[in-house]
Amino acid sequence: MSYKMAPGNDRFGVRMIGPTLLKYGTDSQKEKYLKEITNGDAQWCQGYSEPNSGSDLASINTKGKYDEETNSITITGTKVWTTLAHRANRMFILVRTQEGSKRHEGLSLILLNMKDKGINVNPIKNISGKSSFNEVVLDNVKVSAKNVVGKLHEGWMIALDLLNFERSGIDYIGWAERCFDDLLSYCKEKKLLETNSIKVKLTYLKSSLESAKIMTYKALWIKEQSNSIHMEPSISKILATEINIKIHDFAFEILNTKSIYINNNNKDYFAERIIKNRLFFVSGGILGGTTEIQKNIIARRGLGLPR
């Protein structure tokens, strides 16, 4: 779908909360939400980052007060950089539900309806001029405790597992492969392959694209094999986001001045798409944990290097 640039691809539902619910959800959660995702009736968004909690996700402050009598949770706080929140009807959100808890303790992963009273979405314009992400303010949003994924106060590991589903996403590779194929066609059409340096650069890009694709498949395969934490999702995310950007950068270079104009009269769809995507893909190396965070994960959790 990414290769074909199909609109309406709900990666938060299909790729993140869907597989997470399959693994940790209750029967009623599976029945309700998986059906919606499968039918394409839902658009999910991810309530993780906060104004002061980016790479350091465990420092989140959004609070959820549990009421035993009504078996409900009242959520107050602010989430930010929430991609597609302006279009979403569902959100999975990480909330500190245990009062006084610190870091990884006392957190819960909760499913919200974006139409719930007290949710306000404020779009933020990004580098490409679009409002793909948002600030989401939650003011005493009341939700049933039945919407907690896994156990109350024990959401951290589930949230991390969900991130691994996100990181092993195949869509980065789909975008990169599409851009590479279009670029190659463009180079053939303009007879640019007669220039050795261009051919050499394309060879390097193709080899990295293939290895990133293989590692993405491996990340997906290994998630199916066992529940333990593996490094492949982090490896896959680093490689896939980097090659995506490298291919777009080279396309930008090849297209030269054609790629610096964005206007409605631009008939060169490929050139217009390259600059828009290149600007948008700045986010690839940031969302779901920056490249630097992935390297920290590999070094510390994977290779056992000391803090």
Binding site: S211, I214, M231, I235, K295, N296, I298, L303, L305
Partner: peptide, 21 residues
Amino acid sequence: FQSIQHNLSDMYVNINEAREL
């Protein structure tokens, strides 16, 4: 040191991608 760790991570990533390919 983080700079050393990131170098090791890069090496690990490159070995894995090459090996699997």
